[in-house]
Design a protein around this nucleic acid. Structure first.
Lengths: 244, 244
DNA sequence: CGAGCTTTTGAAGAACGTCAAGAGTTGTGG
DNA sequence: CCACAACTCTTGACGTTCTTCAAAAGCTCG
């Protein structure tokens, strides 16, 4: 994990969803990448800015944050290793949100002119990059359903199930155990709750015996039970290999 | 409006965001379309199904509905003329939500093999189709921010501002007047509220003097005031012409 | 050890949901 | 054209969920 290079990281983002040809891989490897690091709390991309490159997560956690006029903040998405945080910037240019490093973070930037080149030479890779943005949309729809129709406890349970799946795929969770290096205020901004209610909801989840949660370490005791309780169905994550 | 053909409709979806060359237009016109109509309440695409075509809205209103185990429903997006409701199905195939006709509806289906062909022959059109799905993502992020951090009244105000903008572009709103052919239960499912609270929120909005709302007819008295009140910033809709 | 951050607790209130019923509207069949 | 059924909107009463304010307790790091 530690010494995985950025190209391998990128390749491993695609392979759970479709096979890559050796030409595909060679083309990916031909793209220049710019590695950058950020400290905890740093802003990687500013809300309302215009972008000409997009960033792939190597290590750490980032979030997409929307700051409202009221001073409130909503984190609309959480990103971990292998996620292309702002690939939508390739077609939009305008950033409707900021990207913040929630932990120390290493990312690899790809210039948009390189992505544009790919749309000219590889329809298949183009569709795969496109797919990454539509999977992102699927995750967002699930978030909308959670925020709109699930009470706090189920919302939290659903998030933990999603993180379990996503972290497992990149080797950051085993046996339904993983670290969530976020403070409760950040979790509250993800789940649309106040910090106080976030804290009480976590305690409720503990009391329900569904998870052990000490510091940043989370252990899900009965994953099936948690998925059922929170209405989690992993299919929206599209971890399925098919021709795309 | 009434006798606009499906190709014109499609072209008009792109042109507010980027210019099309005559080759682009010819290519779009070469795609076979299948026109279909649906009655109010009919399901156009079933949740959890696999799709091999995507549909462009010609007339009417549709919504993306997620049905939860609890029996609750969340409408994650609203679609009107010119919207490509399930273009993400091209890269995902799996539908994590259903598409329902909220009014009588006419749509044009495009087969995915035709879209695939486009990825082989037109990088530019490919990026434009891709853009439609990323704009969709931007709208979803705004929805997440609304559901997570805005109280009911502002949430409703924000929705009305968004609809005003989107309907105006396709000629279905003038002078901040338009029709919303939805019952309050549907609005509640969009805004994540109960029907009763939806009703009271609409009444609050009326009392605040911000809109007149009789039957399906909505008149926004002071659009600037409403945008300010609800924190609406239209930039996320990406109605800006630029090279994509 | 102390400052600053994070978690936790209590108490009070606001926002929103649920239940139940009445009023208004629309559509349909006789 | 009327009557009735079904749907939609509205209102009231009450309960629950969640927020806000305030402060205490625990943790971390220099």
């Amino acid at each position: 994990m530690t010494d995985m290079d950025a190209y391998e990281r990128l390749i491993k983002t695609f392979t759970p969803r479709d096979d890559l040809s050796s030409d595909d891989i060679a083309l990916l490897r031909s793209m220049p990448l710019r590695i950058a690091t950020y400290g905890k709390g740093e802003e990687i991309i500013a809300q309302d800015s215009e972008v000409s490159e997009s960033c792939l997560m190597m290590t750490g956690w980032t979030g997409r944050a929307v700051y409202l006029e009221s001073g409130k903040r909503q984190i609309t998405a959480l990103h971990i290793a292998g996620d292309f945080v702002d690939l939508h910037g390739f077609t939009l240019k305008y950033m409707d949100h900021s990207v913040v490093a929630l932990t120390a973070t290493q990312v690899a930037f790809v210039r948009h002119d390189e992505l544009k080149k790919i749309t000219h030479v590889s329809p298949h890779l183009t569709r795969l990059f496109w797919m990454l943005t539509t999977i992102d949309g699927a995750v967002q729809r699930t978030t909308i359903a959670s925020l709109g129709r699930r009470p706090a406890l189920e919302r939290l349970g659903h998030l933990l199930c999603e993180l379990d799946c996503r972290l497992s795929v990149v080797g950051l969770a085993q046996d339904h155990r993983y670290d969530v290096p976020l403070v409760q205020e950040e979790l509250a901004d993800i789940l649309g709750l106040s910090v106080v209610h976030m804290n009480r909801t976590i305690q409720d989840l503990r009391k329900a015996g569904l998870v052990t949660w000490q510091g940043s370490r989370i252990v899900i005791h009965d994953f099936g039970k948690l998925t059922q309780f929170s209405g989690f169905d992993p299919r929206y994550l599209n971890f399925i290999k098919r021709e795309r």
